[in-house]
Amino acid sequence: MTITDPLPGTTDLPTAADLPTAAELAAFTLAAQHPVTHDWTDPATRLGTLADEHEFDLQLATDLDLAAQRAEFLNAGPAAPAYLNRWAAVSADLHAMLSIRFEGLDVTKPFVDVSVTSRPVTRADLPALADAARVYAAFHPPRLRFWSAAPMTDWADLDLDRRVLAAPIHTLRGHPVPDGLTLMPTTTTAHYADAQAAYDAVDASHPHHPQEARLLSAEDLQECIDAGTMFGIHWHGEWAGYAGTLAYTQLGLNAQVVQELLLTPHARGHGLGAALSTLLARHLPDPAQVLSGTIHGRNRGALNAATRAGRLDVGGWWWAGTDLP
Rank of each mutant, 00 (worst) to 15 (best):
A82I: 08
Y83L: 07
Y83T: 04
L84T: 01
L84K: 07
N85W: 11
W87M: 08
A88H: 08
A88K: 04
A89I: 04
A89P: 09
V90S: 01
S91H: 02
L94P: 04
L94S: 11
H95L: 02
H95D: 07
H95Y: 06
A96P: 03
L98N: 04
L98G: 00
L98V: 04
S99F: 08
R101L: 02
F102N: 06
E103N: 12
E103L: 13
G104C: 06
L105C: 13
D106K: 04
D106N: 00
V107W: 04
V107M: 08
T108Q: 13
T108C: 13
P110W: 09
F111Y: 14
F111V: 10
F111H: 13
F111E: 00
F111M: 06
V114W: 01
V114T: 13
V116L: 07
T117L: 11
S118A: 11
S118Q: 15
R119L: 12
V121T: 14
T122G: 12
R123E: 14
R123P: 15
D125F: 10
D125A: 07
P127A: 07
P127T: 12
L129S: 02
A130Y: 04
D131G: 06
D131S: 14
D131W: 14
A132R: 01
A132I: 01
A132S: 13
R134Q: 10
R134K: 13
R134G: 04
A138P: 02
F139I: 03
P141D: 06
P141V: 03
P142I: 08
R143P: 05
R143N: 12
F146C: 06
F146W: 08
W147I: 03
W147F: 14
S148M: 07
A149P: 03
P151C: 03
M152W: 11
T153L: 09
T153A: 15
T153R: 08
T153C: 05
D154L: 08
D157Q: 15
D157I: 07
L158W: 03
L160G: 13
D161F: 02
D161S: 07
R162I: 01
R162F: 09
R162E: 09
